[in-house]
Design a binder for these strands. Structure first.
Length: 263
DNA sequence: AAGGTCAACACGTTCA
DNA sequence: TGAACGTGTTGACCTT
């Protein structure tokens, strides 16, 4: 038996079919506001967009009916048990294969987010505690965390991509500057060799940019661009060493320490 | 209608 | 070997 079969078996009785959300919508708005604002931005997160409007079933009526039996903390959310019962009803009506869109409420999402900030993975106890607290099935909590990790990773990938693009641009710019510098040095050497043909000009002692950048702290004598950079880090290169990190708990694979053979 | 979001799913991989 | 996880996909719903 495959692992997922276990999970799916676990769910099969409750949500393999279309889960029907029993909540009514944004608890922060009066019932009268819900009717005309199902699609509004304000209510989008808090509302159950799957609420089935039945003829003669007013928002106020449903509100009274449902909130009276719901826990205080998350007063309008899915109740796992009620949900299962509702699914049976649903299956008798709509096609059993149809997957209904289920939206977590604002409160549920916020609570899950807070939990995610504390730990991005769940142990079984945390999962069941969260599920109980939010009136969700453990599988729903698990799926939410899976998806949340995926979103985090995607975001981090985007940030990394932007960062690498900037690095690339910076390095290209630096490369162009160094190429120009090399060209200038070659020109200087050629000119010097032409002027003083018997004086050894195989190497330049100070390059143009170093000449400009040399500070009292810099050692006299032979100066290289890298020495200048080391002595006073170029603002151009600084961003290369300050990679942005979106979240504290993910480590990009590239930056993971490779196991070394010696240590 | 197109494109985005997100819960849910399917399946492969890893690890104890 | 099973649980947990990562990743890609699906489908319902929403916005523009």
């Amino acid at each position: 038996m495959r692992p997922q079969d276990v999970q799916e078996e676990d769910e099969a009785s409750s949500h393999n079919e279309s889960p029907v959300e029993l909540s009514l919508g944004c608890p922060l708005l009066p019932a009268s506001a819900e009717i005309g604002s199902v699609n509004s931005e304000v209510c989008r997160r808090g509302i159950d967009v799957n609420t089935v409007l039945v003829d003669g079933d007013t928002a106020q009526g449903r509100s009274n009916l449902l909130t009276s039996s719901l826990p205080e903390e998350f007063p309008v959310q899915h109740q796992a048990a009620d949900q299962e019962a509702a699914e049976d009803e649903e299956n008798s009506g709509a096609g059993a294969g149809a997957r209904k869109k289920l939206r977590l409420s604002k409160e549920q999402s916020a609570f899950l987010e807070d939990s995610f900030k504390e730990h991005s993975t769940l142990n079984p106890k945390q999962k069941s505690d969260l599920a109980n607290r939010l009136n969700l099935r453990p599988r729903q909590v698990e799926v939410w965390f899976q998806n949340r990790r995926a979103r985090t990773k995607l975001k981090q990938t985007e940030v990394d991509c932007e960062y690498l693009k900037r690095c690339c641009e910076t390095l290209a710019q630096e490369n162009r500057r160094l190429q120009r510098e090399v060209a200038e040095l070659r020109a200087m050497r050629t000119a010097a060799a032409a002027t003083y043909p018997f004086y050894g000009f195989s190497t330049a002692r100070v390059c143009p940019s170093c000449d400009i950048k040399n500070t009292p702290h810099s050692p006299a004598g032979i100066t290289t661009p890298s020495a200048v950079v080391a002595a006073s880090p170029s603002p151009v290169l600084t961003p290369l060493f300050s990679r942005p990190h979106l979240v504290p708990f993910t480590v990009h694979p590239v930056l993971r320490r490779q196991p070394s053979a010696t240590s």
